[in-house]
Write a protein that binds this DNA or RNA. Structure first.
Lengths: 186, 186
DNA sequence: TTCCTTTTTTGACAATTGTCAATGGAATTC
DNA sequence: GAATTCCATTGACAATTGTCAAAAAAGGAA
């Protein structure tokens, strides 16, 4: 998801929001493999990928499953934890050396309390995430592994150059072997 | 999704919201097969199922695919349209004679304008929908057709008594034939 | 470079699910 | 209650994807 991609009738408010976000954001350079968030803990930050590549993942029957990728300008957090303040099932990891913007949930909550009309943008943001997820469900339900892979490279061609295939495979819901064969096929 | 299931630190606000919702809601009794919303149009209502059973569905390669079921106390709308005011891909249909509460998007927008702190509940509502969807994705990715079916009857046992199996099958992402064989199996 | 680790590919086989065609049964309508 | 439509099951076969084991290729560290 990307802040500022929102369509709004009130561009003033949106600009003001983005400026206010800048004020509470802290950037940090971090190395590949760094964990921004660890499962079982409550996630207290919204992360903005200023530079680099990040994924969220979790373990299912001992297997590492990628739930989501984000790169430049993307927003990411442990969505099951950040808003509801519950321990998360997700880990968030850097796949490259990256520059990450941290927004603490406390600062964001204060901002929303101070300016409740910003809730609207939070809602819109989540609506967008929701719509992306619906696409993903349809993709899983109605497309073969090959079609899902083709969709991915059509929509996110950069991903393949920057991310290991085992992560791509788990993201697509297939085994690494199947992905390998799909890529080989004519 | 169900309004009023929200966890909140400020029960006063939530009660007030529910009362305000009551004021803008209009109930209507409608017969089985009635379409609450038709694809290609913009959905101007949030529907509350007071009594009965409702599904949203769409057509994929000519096949009727159920996206969602709602029964008593559930909220349903064309989620791709209601908030973003775009033509929807979904239809919403009554599977039984039902009593449906209509909340117009204009009335809701006015309410949110008048009391912007309600945006928070809209956001929470959508977060809940999001979390349900994530569950559904995981279910599709990591469970066999039989496991998905077993999960469904464990979580929504009433559904089977009230809904045709072809709708259940498309909701689970399998063919009717496969569902039939799963049900037969020991 | 050379070694070591990680990532990717390949092969053989099994399990799951889909497709198409036909049949059986239940519910609805006239 | 007979006819019609809708819904559900079954059979035979094909296609897709998974599993397990091994080999090859690529990438990093010393």
């Amino acid at each position: 998801m990307i802040f500022g991609n929102l369509i709004d009738t009130n561009q003033f408010d949106l600009k003001e929001l983005l400026a206010d976000i800048q004020k509470i954001k802290i950037n940090e350079s971090l190395a590949k493999h760094h964990l921004l968030h660890r499962e079982g803990t409550i996630c207290n930050h919204l992360f903005i990928v200023e530079q680099g590549m990040v994924r969220s993942f979790y373990y299912k029957d001992g297997k590492d499953i990628t739930a989501h990728f984000e790169m430049e300008n993307g927003l990411i957090t442990a969505i099951d934890s950040f808003f509801q303040r519950k321990p998360s099932r997700y880990n968030i990891e850097l796949l490259e050396d990256s520059v990450i913007g941290f927004i603490s949930s406390a600062d964001l909550a204060n901002l929303l309390k101070e300016k409740p009309h910003y809730e609207k943008y939070m809602r819109m943001q989540i609506e967008q995430i929701y719509i992306d997820l619906v696409d993903r469900i349809e993709n899983l339900l109605f497309h073969s592994a090959k079609e899902r892979y083709d969709n991915l490279i059509a929509n996110q061609p950069l991903l393949l150059q920057r991310v290991n295939l085992n992560h791509i495979a788990s993201f697509l819901g297939i085994t690494q072997e199947t992905l390998s064969r799909i890529r080989k096929a004519p």
